[in-house]
Write a protein that binds this DNA or RNA. Structure first.
Lengths: 342, 342
DNA sequence: GTGAAAGCGCTAACAG
DNA sequence: CTGTTAGCGCTTTCAC
């Protein structure tokens, strides 16, 4: 484990010069720099990030806080963020709030305060007031992806718009009896995206002059199983069965497709279904959906954070760009068959 | 951002005493300790982990290296490891090798060398010789979960035993024409678990006096889609159709169930299927499987690492405990129906 | 362009 | 049991 001293000695310069040569801060004669680089290489020198951090106050590390890990959306955002961070030379330390135990409080009361991260990215996280306060106390760059925290830079798609687009797609195909599977109480706790999607759905119906029928709403927990159960409920009664369903997430939408099959219904002949996300399995199931691009969202979050950390790059163009989303029509949506279209 | 100095001043002691009182190292009079604690609390003091690390050489941080994130198994292992680490006061920094770009090399050549982690946990990762060398150079505690690296402490289930158990289950039900969906070349790259599972499958057949028929093997990529495609291939021809399939992972097994349905086959009447993992969706699909417990594996990896970092705890009982696995019989396996049992 | 030297904030001997 | 004092390994003024 050679230190900066050995490198300096080997290169025949002072440690200050080594530091400058290696970090790129300050000017060093080309020739000297090469000598230093060679020496560093030969000794396999790597700076001690601790010593460096202690001296500069920069950690080269950002914390990512998530409510749980094993859901496609979170994984995808993290992958995007991770690779973007790597490319900037940053580490990503993960704080998973799942586990129900003291995890949540210890993360906020203890871990995030340790001065280990330069910034924090929170993913689809609904926080208590106290937690928000803690985060503000950090006085560090912070961005929220897919959720919202008062007074914090937020990166999220227009959930109302997304829902309206999905619903409009169904309406434009000729559907009128359009159901909605959305979030339940529990899922609201961590991100109140569900209610926005419901609002969008209702707006679209209203705009089309279709009355809102609360019997056509079912709550679920954003899992495939939850979607399945909700769909069974919704589609089970032949007398009240809708011709289409807008489901608030692809995982639930896949559950819906499965439920339809188990009920002997054909998608899309008997029932059209559209989701949100463009989950990795959606193509496989032929699911029409509104794609959002979580990996991109992760990358954008990193861009914003980097921009705050190193003003100067100023790609601030993206600062208020709305996040993209896109209608993807596959085989799960079609015109209602004549026998059912009213 | 008060430092240890202000705390010392407020408590009327030296910084050394503050350090001792707060870290628990060395003895401090009860009364003094309380004064220090009170002062720290009042000032909302938190140690600078950098300064502390620089002084002690301990980072309170472990690196977790994974080939990709969005697969159930990885997520589950990480969750287990993460919560165990938190409870020990450690951070978890994530190194995701996915992305195909320079990620992989930069992680090994750069990030892991930064002296930021006290230990590394690699999950189901097959490494090149050079990478293994790099890791050894670190001279840090290291454990591999569900994979194998020469000369490194490994934590993995008995894949051959698992496969044999699954296959035996099928045999004991009366099946003789048992197919296997296993890994393909690409999946071998990151963990050669697949070949072990195939070996176990073959051992079980041989032990039961059933000849091995290579036509009953299909390779896939460990995704649901891959399993679906492989199963279509395997089950499509009514003349050569097996009565049961042992699938090397639950995700592929679910694909198999879906394929069977699409072929008009009933599970388990026409075809029994059993997987490996006990994926979160397996219960939903009624999939019989051999459960492994990834979260537990993550936790155990942390225990081992902690034990190496802080000798003294010595829970070394676990050091060579084989990992548990368990046959879970659901509705996807049953006796072959008489018309098909040869 | 380069070197000397003063820290960054804490911990760990070593005394007392 | 507690205080003094050297560092931990780097970065960064400030001179030259």
């Amino acid at each position: 484990m050679p230190g900066i001293n050995e490198v300096a000695r080997l290169a025949g310069v002072s440690t200050a010069t080594v530091s400058r040569a290696l970090s790129g801060n300050g000017h060093v004669a080309q020739e000297t720099k090469e000598r230093v680089l060679a020496a560093a290489l030969e000794l396999e020198y790597v700076v001690s990030s601790n010593a460096s951090s202690l001296a500069t106050g920069r950690m080269k590390n950002v914390g990512v806080v998530i409510p749980f890990l094993n859901r496609w959306y979170y994984g995808a955002v993290i992958e995007g963020a991770e690779s973007a961070l790597l490319s900037h030379g940053y580490d990503l330390t993960l704080y998973n709030l799942a586990g129900g135990g003291g995890e949540r409080t210890s993360v906020f009361e203890h871990f995030l305060l340790r001065k280990r991260v330069d910034a924090v990215i929170a993913i689809a996280l609904e926080l208590t007031e106290g937690e928000v306060g803690r985060l503000h106390d950090l006085a560090k760059p912070m961005v929220v992806v897919g959720g919202s925290i008062d007074g914090v830079r937020t990166l999220s798609i227009d959930d109302i718009g997304v829902a309206r687009l999905a619903t409009d797609h169904l309406i434009s195909l000729g559907h009128r009896a359009i159901a909605h599977i959305g979030g339940n109480r529990a899922s609201e706790m961590d991100f109140h995206v569900p209610s926005k999607r419901r609002v969008g759905y209702e707006q679209a119906l209203t705009a089309a002059g279709i009355p809102i029928d609360t019997a056509l709403f079912q709550a679920a927990d954003f899992t495939l199983q939850g979607g399945y159960a909700a769909a069974k409920q919704l589609l089970g009664d032949p007398r009240s069965r809708p011709t289409a369903v807008f489901v608030a997430s692809d995982e639930m939408a896949i559950g819906t497709i499965l439920a339809a099959r188990d009920l002997g219904l054909t998608v899309p002949d008997d029932i059209s279904v559209i989701g949100v996300d463009d989950h990795e399995l959606s193509e496989f199931f032929g699911l029409s959906t509104i794609a959002q691009f979580p990996a991109l969202q992760g990358r954008m979050a990193v861009d914003i954070v980097m921009d705050q950390l190193h003003p100067g790059h100023r790609d601030l163009a993206l600062t208020n760009t709305p996040l993209p989303y896109e209608l993807i029509v596959r085989s799960s949506t079609a015109r209602p068959t004549s026998r059912k279209s009213t």
